[in-house]
Amino acid sequence: MKTTFETLYDNYHQDLYQYVFYMVRNQEEAEDILQDVYVKVLKSYQSFRGESSEKTWLFSIARHTTLDFFRKQKRLRDRMSNLFSNDTEEQLIKDEAALPEEIVVLDDQMKRIYKALNKCSNDQKQVIILRYIQSFSIQETADIMSCSISKVKTNQHRAINKLRKILRK
């Protein structure tokens, strides 16, 4: 099992980490999610049938695990909402606290793009991360997101328009 882990880690770890980090924007949470991803992957590696590429399969598991994390976080926040007067404030504080060095040193324009990305829907954000930051093809992005190529194109188009609109303000 360790050998499988080491091979996967050497080939894909930094890319997977980057994808999850850009989704959740918090290093500790990204680390926790990746642990979940590896646990799932190692448990089901024997059943991987090679219908998609290994990389696409891994990213697909990372995507599901990240979306599950969002759902759990949302429920937890709902339950705790009486302790916080304003969720948005809480989120902002968390965002600022968790910024990694690579983001802190960006120029203002890039920081604005990073912040604007969080105003996109989950689907739009994923397409932007996979297509532009991770350089996946449209077909690979569609495979990871289990959707059609046309849906990837639509989400990409809408995400770019949304970002442009936000950045013009």
Partner: peptide, 16 residues
């Protein structure tokens, strides 16, 4: 649009 796409491609690689 082109400039925005270029900037997105230049977003930093975040390392674990």
């Amino acid at each position: 649009k082109q400039q925005l796409e270029d900037k997105l491609r230049q977003m930093p690689k975040i390392k674990d």
